[in-house]
Design a protein around this nucleic acid. Structure first.
Length: 944
RNA sequence: GCCGGAGUGGCGGAAUGGCAGACGCGGUGGACUCAAAAUCCACUAUCUGUAAUGGAUGUGUGGGUUCAAGUCCCUCCUCCGGCACCA
């Protein structure tokens, strides 16, 4: 084997690791791990799609694998598992289209993903592989659901407790068993409700709020409408405060924490009671600005508000009903589309402003949401943008109760009597009776105290977070372990019977046809034999909804720790040893959904005593998106083929349009202006464009600007890079190295095949340093000899150890690789006889990054065992230190000379040396020195 | 609109407030070769000057702090991500 050939090296070591179970992770009680510190390094497990792996997957997986291998060599007991998030819509959509059972496609996809992942040489413990669709896994997903079902939230204790410990109020208890059961059901964390939900006809299922983007389904982009349906819901809102508070100490990026905070959306304010004028009824409103209560000139209820029925005057009835109907018919999409102008209708009723006794009109409008706060607001048009807009629209009075600053009035061209926009900032209260002169914060405190004293209001906290809609009308998901009792006529009685742990797993029934029914029952209703259950003489129907895809991924990090346990989701001793996850790496697309849901489940499990810590993931890192190769796009007026376009470049004429005159969204382009005309996109080869100033232009026609960007990889654009291709051409080690060398892990970066070639060349260079390329089989190069390294090589080696160690630890893999390249360049260029010991150390540094070829080197260097558990090299501080260093000398802030000085020279010495330097003297030209700043080991700065 | 993050050579990127551009790609020249590929060596921010260990400019824009700013502060611009009637 003369040359570096990854296709020979890589399968050899993959097989070695597999047959010897090199990366088997022993359980905590195994003697060989006694005394070793633990580290749990977790990847977000993939959804095995039919398209196979793309190069984005191995980015995070390589990062964690490097760290896992590195920590093993540093003596850690490393947990590094992988599995499959295999339930979900895509498999089912595919199954419907091609009439194949989702289990078959799912298994085929898993097989392909496993092959691809194994071909990249990740050091997973394959004995711990989990698959969320495996009945033995589903069993415990269902078990956790039952645990949620069995839990209520005790606000006094601030924790979830067993439903058996729920105190039953005497008046409920006195009404008998059925009332008690109903009361319990109303407190469970998993409950059923008949609420308006996001129904997606295109997918035939309901979706969680989080799965709806701009009124369309996140998967498939189908329109979504509001419909009231019976659904399973998880009371995540009970945990809102803890989900928010516990975020603080986590080692997560600020942006993800902020996204979660915003999603939870805590706001502090007050709830205020408004009496309905002339009636014995009240409306509660929530406000974050109780200090503006004197400025409340009208009220708005949401169209769904229950009080409307009672308060609407006969004259307004028709208008109100019509508005309600229109609002209910509107899909979310239409609601956002129509949001440009405010709509609403007067109810005819008036409320009394509790602070000044004034009658204010009550309106309904769909800008007030039924699901937030109390579904009703006091409108303060002077100090709220939305209320201001509405008041302008319908000619309602605007009252200023917070004094705007003069600058603000000037900037907005307003006066206190005539606001042009709402003044939403804080300030000093005015026109507010006893609040006058108080700054906003104090005014809030005072008004809340006053209201509280009169029993008209109270301090209140609200959250944007809604309860989690947990059922889907689909086939390919976990069935609920729930039975509905039915009476003799076959109607549900409302009594619910959960399955017991012994009944689990509840498997999916076999179906011929798993198409959605379009009804809230879902396709499982077609399996009538499965649905009908008789036990203890009673008849039941199984729940025919299934759980959403998030269910399985909520707790998979727990199952890895004890994947085969038939008696528990995980042995408590193992959970205690491994949790929390020390490092969790995955895409930022899971910033809210998966991470919020699994934190919620974890907290419930924590409250119920199943896990030892309140948070599952101590450190979270999001790898950046990998884009396709940079594309240069020119815009031509005429329709043209790409081949013709090549010649087109050389053609003079005015067919080309400059990018600055074109609006381009990435897939199609038009001319700018009133009547946009479609343009033809011409993909240009790199050598036909050049940079001119800020932008790229056609080489042949430099006045034509060209669009240069890298796009997200997508099938339709045809810029997807398949890891298989890269592995075939350059090998897994090069792929791994390139993905890490591209730039910082968290940054978004474009792919470039030539970069892969660059790291391949680096590995080939190392190969030629160590291996005799004239021999038939891998043999040590004759220049490698058992001699001590020269002083310079030794120093550079220790510097490399230091840099690679620190950068690997800090996940700065790109600069770690650069350090290895630098050291290799030194060996190649400056060293004739290559010392064996130096190469051995260097190979260990390389091992976590390019493990296959490193194992091969290790073997050729005379070792018979894997290097996976070799001790990581340690650098010698005294060798890293320089004796003599070059320091710059600045004169008035500019570097004018360089000084070769002893590394430990102090400030006084440096100053003396600098002022004696001939170059410095020349620059000073006898001018007086005003000041000298000498920083040992850094620089000398002279001011004249 | 609001909240995050980022703007550095032809490209990806590097730089505890202390010599901007490490490392890689690409490019130019050379060596090897009958030739090519591969490999090796040298150069490669811009302008200027080439007598050199020369000079000037330079990290999106404009200002500021400092002996010293890519790095800290303020203004604006652009790009990416998220949220978007949440009272």
């Amino acid at each position: 084997m003369p040359n570096y050939n990854p296709r020979a090296v890589e399968p050899k070591w993959q097989q070695y690791w597999e047959t010897r179970k090199t990366f088997r992770c022993p359980d905590p009680d195994a003697p060989e791990v006694a005394g070793k510190p633990k580290i749990y390094i977790l990847d977000m497990f993939p959804y095995p799609s039919g398209a196979g792996l793309h190069v984005g997957h191995p980015e995070g997986y390589t990062a964690t694998d490097i760290l896992a291998r590195f920590r093993r060599m540093r003596g850690y007991h490393v947990m590094h598992p992988i599995g499959w998030d295999a339930f979900g819509l895509p498999a089912e959509q595919y199954a419907i289209k091609n009439n194949v059972h989702p289990r078959i496609t799912t298994q085929a996809n898993i097989t392909n993903f496993r092959r691809q992942i194994k071909s990249l040489g990740f050091s997973y413990d394959w004995d711990r592989e989990v698959d969320t669709t495996d009945p033995e896994y589903v069993k415990w997903t269902q078990w956790i659901f039952l645990e949620l079902y069995d839990t209520w939230y005790d606000h006094a204790a601030k924790k979830g407790r067993s439903i058996s410990e729920l105190p039953i109020p005497a008046e409920v208890a006195s009404q008998g068993e059925a009332a008690v059961a109903k009361y319990r059901d109303s407190k469970r964390l998993a409950f059923q409700a008949n609420n308006p939900v996001n129904w997606c006809p295109g997918l035939g299922t309901v979706l969680a709020n989080e799965e709806v983007i701009d009124g369309k389904s996140e998967v498939g982009g189908f329109p979504v409408e509001r419909r009231p349906l019976r659904q399973w819901i998880l009371r995540i809102t009970e945990y809102a405060e803890r989900l928010l508070d516990d975020l603080e100490p986590l080692d997560w990026s600020e942006s993800i924490k902020t996204m979660q905070k915003n999603w939870i959306g805590k706001s502090i304010g007050a709830e205020v009671e408004f009496r309905i004028s002339g009636r014995d009824a009240c409306v509660m409103v929530f406000t974050t600005r109780p200090d503006t209560l004197y400025g409340a000139t009208y009220m708005v209820l949401s169209p769904e508000h229950p009080l409307l029925e009672g308060i609407t005057t006969p004259e307004q009835k028709a208008a109100v009903t019509a508005y309600q109907e229109a609002a209910s018919r509107k899909s979310d999409f239409e609601r956002t589309e129509m949001a440009k102008t405010k709509t609403g209708v007067f109810t005819g009723a008036f409320a009394v402003n509790p602070v000044n006794g004034k009658d204010i009109p009550i309106w309904i409008a769909d800008y007030v949401l039924a699901g937030y706060g109390t579904g009703a607001i006091m409108a303060v048009p002077g100090h709220d943008e939305r209320d201001f807009e509405f008041a302008k629209q319908f000619g309602l009075p605007i009252q200023v109760v917070v004094t705007p600053t003069p600058e603000w009035l000037k900037k907005t061209k307003s006066t206190t009597d005539d606001l042009k926009v709402a003044y939403c900032e804080e300030g000093v209260a005015c026109n507010s009776g006893p609040l006058d002169g108080l700054p906003t914060a104090e005014a809030k405190e005072k008004i809340i105290a006053d209201l509280q004293a009169k029993g008209l209001g109270t301090r209140k906290v609200n959250y944007k977070l809604r309860d989690w809609l947990f059922s889907r009308q689909r086939y390919w998901g976990e069935p609920f372990p729930i039975l509905h009792e039915v009476d003799a006529e076959g109607n549900r009685t409302g009594v619910i019977e959960p399955l017991t742990a012994a009944d689990l797993p509840l498997r999916l029934p076999e179906l011929e046809d798993f198409k959605p029914t379009g009804s809230p029952e879902g396709p499982l209703v077609k399996a009538q034999d499965w649905v009908k259950v008789t036990r203890n003489g009673k008849t039941y129907q199984r729940e025919t909804n299934t759980m959403p895809q998030w269910a399985g991924s909520c707790w998979y990090y727990l199952r890895y720790l004890d994947p085969k346990n038939p008696n528990a989701f995980c042995d408590p001793a193992k959970v205690k040893h491994w949790l929390p996850v020390d490092l969790y790496v995955g895409g930022a697309e899971h910033a809210v959904l998966h991470l919020l849901y699994s934190r919620f489940w974890h907290k419930v499990l924590f409250d119920r005593g199943h896990v030892p810590c309140p948070e599952p993931f101590h450190r979270l890192v999001n790898q950046g998106l990998i884009l396709g190769e940079t594309e240069w796009t020119g815009f031509a007026r005429t329709q043209t083929t790409e081949a013709a376009a090549r010649n087109f470049v050389d053609v003079t004429g005015d067919e080309w349009l400059s990018a600055k005159d074109v609006s381009f969204d990435g897939s199609s382009a038009t001319t700018k202006g009133k009547n946009p005309a479609a343009l033809s996109l011409v993909k240009l080869p790199e050598d036909q464009v050049e940079k001119q100033g800020e932008s790229f232009v056609l080489k042949a026609k430099p006045d034509i600007r060209v669009d240069a960007r890298a796009f997200k990889m997508s099938k339709s654009r045809g810029n997807v890079v398949n890891p298989d291709t890269v592995v075939n051409q350059y090998g897994a080690d090069s792929l791994r190295l390139y993905e890490m060398f591209m730039g910082p892990l968290e940054a978004m970066k474009p792919w470039n095949m030539r970069g892969v070639e660059g790291v391949y060349r680096f590995l080939s260079r190392v190969w030629r340093l160590i291996i005799d390329d004239t021999a038939e089989t891998p043999t040590l190069h004759p220049s490698v000899q058992d001699v001590p390294p020269d002083a310079e090589t030794l120093k550079l080696l220790h510097k490399a150890i230091k840099k690679v160690t620190e950068d690997t630890e800090g996940l700065r893999f790109n600069t770690g690789i650069a350090a290895m390249m630098e050291f290799t360049n030194h060996l190649t260029a400056k060293v004739e006889v290559r010392p064996l010991s130096t190469l051995k150390t260097f190979v260990l540094l390389l091992a976590p990054y390019a493990p296959h070829v490193a194992e091969e080197f290790w073997e050729v260097l005379g070792n018979s065992n894997t290097l996976a558990y070799e001790p990581w090299p340690v650098y010698d501080e005294s060798l890293v230190r320089e004796d003599e260093i070059e320091l710059p000398v600045q004169i008035n802030g500019k570097v004018k000379a360089k000084l070769l000085v002893p590394a430990d020279a102090d400030a006084a010495t440096l100053e003396k040396m600098a002022l004696a330097d001939p170059k410095v003297l020349e620059q000073l030209a006898g001018k007086p020195v005003r000041k000298v700043i000498a920083k040992p080991r850094q620089m000398v700065s002279i001011v004249i």
